[in-house]
Write a protein that binds this DNA or RNA. Structure first.
Lengths: 139, 139
DNA sequence: CTCATTGCAAATTCTTTGCATAAGG
DNA sequence: CCTTATGCAAAGAATTTGCAATGAG
């Protein structure tokens, strides 16, 4: 949970990326972010730690981290992409359309079902993600 | 399958929308599009029928149709939004990342499982959609 | 007739890129 | 050192909006 800078730098190098100041900061922020921040939010948070980071670097870093498999990009409707550390356990997202809150849903059984269905069709899954738009029931 | 112009106009009015020339054309194109076109593609197709439609109207119409529940907007990663007539039977999408082809997956069982899970949490589902990125297995 | 809808062009929003400088290994 | 990454500012892509003209009911 509380990875130190050295660990992060190592994680970056293991992923084949240079462990720059900016990447380390961004990765640490993502790891301690329970929500699913977008690029602007990450940029704002990063600047409180390292005033020099630019938004361009945030985007470039997110692309690099995604390509390396360390980060997952989430495309919600009508809003900028959000990002999260690649989850160990597969999970989906429910967005409360009234509050905007994003809730993670684990979905082992569903994941297995989908996997079977898709494999029967002759495909292998690279990634899968379900987005549910929902509203709290009254009462 | 082969709805005529009158039906379309009526469908629009039933949804509380004025049945304009442009909306009727766009709705008819969507109904006969087996793929999942984006705004630009719809614009191009619409112009072959009615040269006067503008891209702005395509966007405005799609918003209106979506709000009215006639159309579903699909947010794929790294590409403009695509649109489809709101499906009668719930289904998800698999995108072949090599060919770009989009395949519809029906998912009755999975839909039911998700529904139960979410209801147990005290939410009611407004929409749900799964996007699977996959690649054809060799052989 | 009256108000919603349209086309056009300009504006926004999110994201990417070119280039000279800085910094990782 | 040598290359890759960075910041900045400018470019780009997708989508939205203001406004005067048009068209549906």
């Amino acid at each position: 949970m509380c990875a130190d800078i050295t660990d992060l730098a190592q994680a970056l190098r293991n992923a084949g990326l240079r462990a720059t100041q900016q990447r380390t900061v961004l990765l640490s922020i993502l790891m301690e972010s329970a929500d699913h921040p977008n690029a602007d939010e990450l940029y704002a948070r990063a600047k409180t730690i390292d005033d020099s980071v630019s938004l361009a670097t945030v985007y470039r870093t997110l692309s690099a981290l995604e390509e390396a498999g360390l980060v997952r990009k989430l495309s919600f409707e009508n809003e900028p992409s959000r990002f999260e550390i690649t989850p160990v356990a597969e999970h989906d997202h429910l967005i409360d359309i009234d509050s905007g809150e994003v809730i993670e849903l684990s979905s082992d059984e569903i994941t297995r079902l989908r996997q079977e269905m898709v494999e029967r069709m002759g495909y292998e899954i690279l990634s899968q993600h379900t987005l549910i738009r929902a509203r709290k029931k009254p009462g």
